[in-house]
Design a protein around this nucleic acid. Structure first.
Lengths: 250, 250
DNA sequence: GTGCACCATTCGACATTATCGAATGTAATT
DNA sequence: AATTACATTCGATAATGTCGAATGGTGCAC
């Protein structure tokens, strides 16, 4: 591990949490002399990875990250294949749909198709959500022992009154999730919002992502037809990725 | 400039262009020994900034970039203020709208509101477009001498038959753009697609972004009413940012 | 099925390079 | 106008990343 790159990445992570920080605050965060941090920040700035705020002298994340992330999304085969199926999913169910993958124990959303009404909705692509409190996360955990071991070893954060924070309770859902190829989450992450997810597998039979629909709590539970459309979507995407069979075998 | 960070950023830039590269290819691109590149790539990988493809041993950009970019977008005051006005703009005009800022001589789109029909549309946030071939770019050039000097000094790439590649022709549009607080682009970037943009200013009177509508070529030119709604949108966003007057003075 | 070739990866000596503390500059605050 | 709290610059030092050679692994061809 190259020291200065490690430090640079940690600076980006700090800015990710705090939005705007001065050299001194970053130096305190890394426990390094300000001059050292300054050199690293200036190097990042030269590449547009951080920018200095127009007024004041604190630093924040830079636009180069947006450009890089846009290319990252383009490299994802799952996403390209999933997009049209997800649009169809949202159209048929009238619900927002999400596509997520695992990254460092969390779920990161790599696509989002809005609910098909004309209300204003936040773009959710790029958001990260805790694995244990999302339907997508539960799917990914249920199909990967090592991922599950990783996540369930750490303490699970409480997001709402209904968040499952007991590893054993969570683990007990996994067999059912694998049986139905379907996971649910009922106001466990956000009050008033539930979701349901299904696994997506690639040509090697590996679960590489999960697709979900977001259901307002007052429409819970969804009709059987809705769940079937979701499963159908996951199967169609999987088939496009070269999967021979669906649901995935354990 | 710290050497290893500079090299790391260049590796990210190479992957941005080429999607998937092996250590050897990266080493050739940077003209460095493979072992040196390997050390840098592994450091980036440890932080999720790059990932190794599941099968094969090439590397590609990683999910950490997506998470970082998501936070970057959240830090942008303009974007937060612009979103609801842009949704209104798209609703009233029936057209897709875009919000862009300047970065390293290019335009980078920081928000996108889809056309309000149920067709499938690519999310465009994060895309970069050449300044000289976009309405947003023309606005940002027209209001910033130093930015214009920068961009127009370099050769201008041809994107369609109608792309303006002569710096003088482009420069001659600037007074009109400033007079009307409105720039247009007619199939100069993408065949079949035109656009029209207006400047957004902040509390200091600086042009910090531009908002645009995307117009199918067969609907060109747009009605005067459409242009007025666009200008109104830019004014409303500017006012929320603390601007005292609009259009911006030169 | 075996051997070959290519490429990623590991390792350790070396000197380049980042680091750090002190000095300087800058802007805001009283 | 003086003071404080920053960011920023500079140069000596040795810690650090770099590089070439050796190793390991994987896929392809014969």
């Amino acid at each position: 591990m190259i020291q200065s790159i490690d430090r640079a990445a940690k600076i980006l992570a700090l800015l990710q949490g705090a939005r705007r920080l001065g050299i001194g605050e970053l130096a305190a965060g890394l426990q390094l002399p300000p001059s050292t941090v300054h050199g690293i920040v200036k190097s990042l700035q030269a590449h547009g990875l951080v920018v200095q705020e127009a007024v004041g002298n604190r630093y924040m994340l830079g636009p180069a990250l947006l450009k890089l992330s846009s290319v990252y999304l383009d490299t994802l085969d799952v996403r390209a294949r999933a997009m049209r199926w997800m649009h169809e999913l949202s159209r048929r169910t009238g619900l927002a749909s999400r596509l997520g993958v695992e990254s460092f124990g969390e779920v990161i959303l790599i696509h989002h198709d809005r609910r098909p009404d004309d209300t204003e909705q936040m773009p959710e692509t790029g958001l990260t959500i805790p694995s244990h409190a999302s339907a997508i996360g539960k799917v990914l955990l249920a199909y990967s022992d090592e991922h599950a071991a990783d996540v369930l070893a750490r303490p699970l954060r409480n997001l709402t009154a209904d968040t499952l924070t007991d590893p054993d309770k969570l683990r007990s859902e996994f067999p059912l999730i694998r049986r139905d190829a379907l996971a649910t989450e009922n106001e466990e992450a956000v009050i008033g919002e539930s979701s349901m997810a299904a696994p997506i597998i690639d040509g090697h039979g590996e679960v590489v992502a999960a697709v979900a629909i977001v259901i307002p709590a007052n429409e819970w539970p969804p009709a059987d037809a809705t769940a079937n459309i979701l499963r159908e979507t996951a199967r169609n995407i999987s088939r496009e990725l070269g999967a021979r069979s669906w649901p995935p075998s354990v």
